[in-house]
């Protein structure tokens, strides 16, 4: 990929390659098991049979960051945990995406205290923010679909500077 990326202007080859790669990436996003607090329970419910997340290809939760390409930060991020999140994010291989699920990881939520990080985007870059406390499983699926739309916009063609 590194050899052909960013070399050509947008043409029929790049768009075809893009559509194949993006379809492959968005249809098999493998999240990491990273539930912190209450949102984790709704994430588990999304993975269960009523709101099946597996039909989006994202049902396999990998325990190791080295095997996953999506991390769903579900729950409150405390300062003690932020250190760990930085390390886990660095261990994930590219391309990687981050979904911040819930109010706590997006902006601190109701916990504006001495021990809470006000938003996980202070330590790692976030692609999709899902509000809610906790967000309904349908909201998480909507966030996942928006992430899939974002992945669709990726391209190997030269980007206009």
């Amino acid at each position: 990929m590194g050899l052909i990326e960013n070399r050509m202007e947008k043409n029929v080859i790049t768009t075809t390659v893009d559509s194949v790669f993006n379809w492959a990436r968005k249809s098999s996003l493998w999240p990491m098991t990273f539930g912190l607090a209450c949102c984790a329970i709704e994430m588990m419910a999304t993975g269960a049979s009523r709101f099946d997340m597996d039909r989006f290809g994202a049902g396999i939760f990998r325990p190791s960051p080295r095997q996953s390409d999506l991390i769903i930060i579900a729950g409150t991020v405390t300062l003690k945990m932020a250190e760990v999140i930085q390390r886990l994010y660095d261990q994930m291989p590219d391309p990687k995406w981050v979904i911040s699920m819930g109010a706590c990881s997006s902006a601190g939520g109701p916990f504006d205290t001495y021990a809470t990080l006000q938003g996980v985007d202070k330590v790692i870059p976030v692609d999709v923010y899902i509000p809610g406390c906790p967000p309904r499983p349908e909201a998480l699926l909507y966030g996942l679909m928006r992430l899939q739309d974002k992945i669709d916009e990726m391209t190997i063609a030269k980007k206009a500077s």
């Binding site: 300062l79 932020a82 250190e83 930085q86 938003g119 985007d121 202070k122 330590v123 790692i124 870059p125």
Partner: peptide, 8 residues
């Protein structure tokens, strides 16, 4: 302990 990035 933390590397705080500039929030977008």
């Amino acid at each position: 302990h933390l590397k705080i990035r500039k929030t977008p």
